[in-house]
Design a protein around this nucleic acid. Structure first.
Length: 181
DNA sequence: CGCATTTGACCGGCGC
DNA sequence: GCGCCGGTCAAATGCG
């Protein structure tokens, strides 16, 4: 199966971290626009289609997230793989009690042409919330990776204008690699 | 019986 | 300061 992503860069894709996924582009400077996902339960649809980078959409802005639309190109993220989504950058500064730090969260959003919204991407998700949002007649669902200590969250909602699309937003980086099924 | 899901309550940020 | 709004919690319920 092929996934098409538009408007994203290499390291973005690496941070999607879908288990077993192989990226389409080999050249480091070639913007990856597609990659292949192993056989999952994507029976309905055949491809992902990222319409546009919706980072500027207020609905997708995470609190504390740098309000930089072009952050993807600017952040100091090594293209050498899954870079730190978290900046543990507590250098010296000994016994400081202030545990505050800049915790960047990788965020990836894409649309899926699918009639069902529970797409098995290989991870085990636990739903923890559902909300009606103002701009859409459709509810938004909140999932969290059920692996212990894994901070990854995911939200799924139907496209307000194209109900046959499902917008999925991943947030965070998995601390583990494999499928968790 | 042990889990995931459900669903209203709760909470914090932000704009007015 | 209040109310809207998006996000999370948690108790109850459902399901295997």
């Amino acid at each position: 199966m092929q996934v098409e992503l538009i408007g994203m860069d290499n390291h973005n894709l690496h941070n999607i971290n879908i288990p077993g996924a192989t990226y389409g582009a080999e050249a480091p400077d070639t913007p990856v626009s597609e990659y292949t996902v192993p056989e999952r339960n994507f029976e309905v649809s055949d491809f992902f289609e990222l319409d546009e980078w919706i980072d500027e959409d207020p609905a997708f802005v995470v609190p504390g997230y740098p309000q930089n639309p072009g952050y993807a190109a600017n952040e100091a993220v090594n293209s050498s793989g899954i870079s730190s989504g978290y900046h543990e950058g507590d250098s010296s500064t000994g016994g400081g009690s202030g545990r505050e730090k800049t915790e960047l969260k990788e965020k990836v959003a894409f649309k899926t042409k699918s009639e069902i919204e529970i797409l098995d991407d290989g991870f085990k998700w636990r739903k923890y919330g559902k909300k009606m949002v103002k701009n859409s007649p459709n509810p938004r669902n909140y999932y969290k990776c059920s692996v212990e200590g894994c901070p990854v969250k995911k939200r799924v909602e139907r496209d307000k204008e194209d109900p046959r699309y499902v917008v999925t937003t991943y947030e965070g980086i998995h601390i583990h690699q494999g499928p968790q099924n």
